[in-house]
Design a protein around this nucleic acid. Sequence first.
DNA 1: CAATATTATTCCCGATCGGGAATATTTAAC
DNA 2: GTTAAATATTCCCGATCGGGAATAATATTG
Lengths: 71, 71
Amino acid sequence: MTVTDIGSLIRQTRNTQGLRQDELAAAANVGVRFLIELEAGKETAQVGKVLAVLSALGIVMTLTPPAGTTS
Amino acid sequence: MTVTDIGSLIRQTRNTQGLRQDELAAAANVGVRFLIELEAGKETAQVGKVLAVLSALGIVMTLTPPAGTTS
DNA sequence: CAATATTATTCCCGATCGGGAATATTTAAC
DNA sequence: GTTAAATATTCCCGATCGGGAATAATATTG
């Protein structure tokens, strides 16, 4: 999973929901410029804001540790 | 999923793998201070570096869009 | 083609990042 | 208690964020 992957998924999900960039940006409380750069795969985006965008789209994140290290 | 959750999981996984903060930081190519702040739930951490840490620990991220929006 | 919608790029600039290194502070071991 | 290990906090400071607004470029539609 790369930042480019995340950006692509965000853009795709946004489109299938019929949202414009400025609408999603407003919903997630971020700037339009930030969203543009995030969709383009910006490595340096702040993780909190990335989570806000994902959440605004209803995208659920799951983190699975390597097998056998859960204990 | 919050940044605090991510930080907690990173710390926990790091501990179960017997890694010190400086060791993981070196493996992920980030600074020790960054890792400390990330484990504490720093909202403003750069997403690229967060992914690097997760990857160094073998933690897999999955993003699932809301049902019915995959098309 | 013309008109519009949408996305992307650039400007300025205060605020904050994030690094290494040094210094606490906390925790563990003997 | 003492020595050491591990974690956390501060210092300085160049690099970059990220905002709004304006402009440019790229679809879409009639």
